[in-house]
Simulated scan of single mutants.
Amino acid sequence: MGEVANVIVAFAVIVFLFKWVTSSSSGTPDRTAADTLGFRPKNATQDMVDTVSAMFPDIPPDNIRYDLLRTGNVELTTNKILEKGFLEAPPPAYYTLYPRTQNPAPARPATRNTAASTSKQPQESLISRYSLQDRVANQKPDDPPVSEQEIGGKAVWEDTPEKREASLRERKAQMILAARQ
């Protein structure tokens, strides 16, 4: 009977060691997303992240994706941002499943490229846009400042659309020249 007990104990130890060795060697790769995050993640596409990120550019995309994985709904995530003003940061386990990307979201580079291309081009001034160069040249530095009544004041309703347009154009010109002073 003593030998049978030794064989059973030896067999139990071998089974225990085998399970321990095989489970520790594969460990984290076999863990599911639900085990890692602590909840069952819902479907969150990049379009959903881009939509919320376009509405709230100050919220980090990882926070948005994490909340979308929890809720699965853009509307709920948006309401949470509007109510709280922020989204919770994802836990470190989130980054094992969804590593941070080095390049920013696709919607943002287009905005940056547009801003960069406009900064390279010389900005058109209001004086040149409204063709007020000759008025600026005729102004003298010792001219008295223009009063508020002369700047925009109240417009008189003209009879024809052409006269109303000319009156509006003249008021714009006066405001631009007054702002320049």
Results as ranks from 00 to 15, higher is better:
residue 95 Y to C: 12
residue 54 A to H: 11
residue 105 A to S: 15
residue 93 A to E: 14
residue 53 S to V: 02
residue 45 T to M: 09
residue 54 A to N: 13
residue 82 L to S: 15
residue 96 T to C: 05
residue 37 L to P: 00
residue 81 I to E: 00
residue 55 M to G: 05
residue 32 T to C: 05
residue 100 R to G: 07
residue 39 F to V: 08
residue 105 A to C: 11
residue 87 L to V: 03
residue 84 K to C: 12
residue 44 A to H: 02
residue 36 T to P: 01
residue 111 T to R: 15
residue 60 P to R: 06
residue 81 I to M: 04
residue 78 T to E: 08
residue 81 I to D: 01
residue 98 Y to P: 04
residue 41 P to C: 10
residue 64 I to E: 01
residue 71 T to Q: 12
residue 34 A to E: 06
residue 62 D to I: 06
residue 69 L to A: 03
residue 68 L to K: 00
residue 73 N to P: 03
residue 50 D to H: 05
residue 55 M to H: 09
residue 71 T to W: 02
residue 104 P to W: 12
residue 43 N to C: 03
residue 69 L to Y: 01
residue 41 P to E: 05
residue 58 D to P: 00
residue 41 P to A: 10
residue 40 R to V: 10
residue 80 K to L: 12
residue 86 F to V: 00
residue 105 A to D: 06
residue 85 G to P: 01
residue 65 R to H: 15
residue 98 Y to M: 04
residue 49 V to H: 02
residue 42 K to Q: 10
residue 54 A to R: 10
residue 82 L to M: 13
residue 52 V to I: 14
residue 57 P to V: 05
residue 81 I to K: 02
residue 74 V to W: 02
residue 38 G to M: 07
residue 87 L to M: 14
residue 46 Q to I: 09
residue 48 M to S: 00
residue 41 P to Q: 02
residue 92 P to K: 14
residue 55 M to F: 10
residue 57 P to I: 08
residue 64 I to F: 02
residue 103 N to E: 14
residue 108 R to Y: 14
residue 50 D to R: 07
residue 90 P to M: 11
residue 57 P to Y: 07
residue 78 T to G: 07
residue 103 N to P: 06
residue 83 E to S: 13
residue 48 M to D: 01
residue 49 V to R: 00
residue 101 T to M: 14
residue 70 R to A: 08
residue 73 N to M: 06
residue 96 T to Q: 10
residue 63 N to K: 03
residue 108 R to M: 13
residue 31 R to P: 01
residue 95 Y to E: 08
residue 75 E to P: 04
residue 97 L to I: 15
residue 81 I to H: 03
residue 41 P to W: 02
residue 91 P to N: 07
residue 40 R to G: 06
residue 66 Y to T: 07
residue 69 L to D: 01
residue 105 A to N: 08
residue 35 D to W: 05
residue 63 N to C: 14
residue 34 A to T: 15
residue 72 G to N: 03
residue 70 R to Y: 13
residue 39 F to D: 05
residue 110 A to F: 14
residue 79 N to T: 04
residue 51 T to G: 04
residue 89 A to C: 08
residue 44 A to G: 07
residue 45 T to P: 01
residue 87 L to I: 12
residue 69 L to C: 06
residue 91 P to K: 09
residue 110 A to P: 03
